[in-house]
Amino acid sequence: MNIFRLTGDLSHLAAIIILLLKIWKSRSCAGISGKSQVLFALVFTTRYLDLLTSFISLYNTTMKVIYIGCSYATVYLIYMKLKATYDGNHDTFRVEFLIVPVGGLAFLVNHDFSPLEILWTFSIYLESVAILPQLFMISKTGEAETITTHYLFFLGLYRALYLINWIWRFYFEGFFDMIAIVAGVVQTILYCDFFYLYVTKVLKGKKLSLPA
């Protein structure tokens, strides 16, 4: 555990909790892509099946349980409790175009051809693109609430910090996981355009809106 990994995890946790609290407090999930949230729930479910097979640390187990619990709570709020506020008309990204290729790739490129390992690989690949329905929704409506942009910022920051963590681990532990690294780089790149808008607009007190 190094400082980049820890702050990365905490940044991820912050993102998840910001989103959940935003929806809960405002009693509205307007502007939030339910599809992205379902994909993240799927990511956590398929990745953390090892909760049942191996114990790494109390920290590891606790965080996994929190991530899974919060992601299902978010999906529940969007599709059940606050369904009336869900903006389904703008959430039109075709997720099968992500799931099918990602599933195929997980079968072809993995560390070990075993069920748990393929599901882990699937979750890594899927996570790298799971935010696309949300970004697509923002590009479609041309704007995002400021609190939603904070959520996206922390989610992107988490992946960027993990990249530094992997560089650290490579130098100091000789550890590298090519699948996680390549997917992590892809994931971070997807946030670059958003980061630019976040820094140039949101941090200067303006609302994030895209030119028509």
Binding site: R5, T53, M63, Y67, F175
Partner: peptide, 10 residues
Amino acid sequence: HALTMPHDEL
């Protein structure tokens, strides 16, 4: 040395 399973990251 490359990856070790189980995966220790989140």
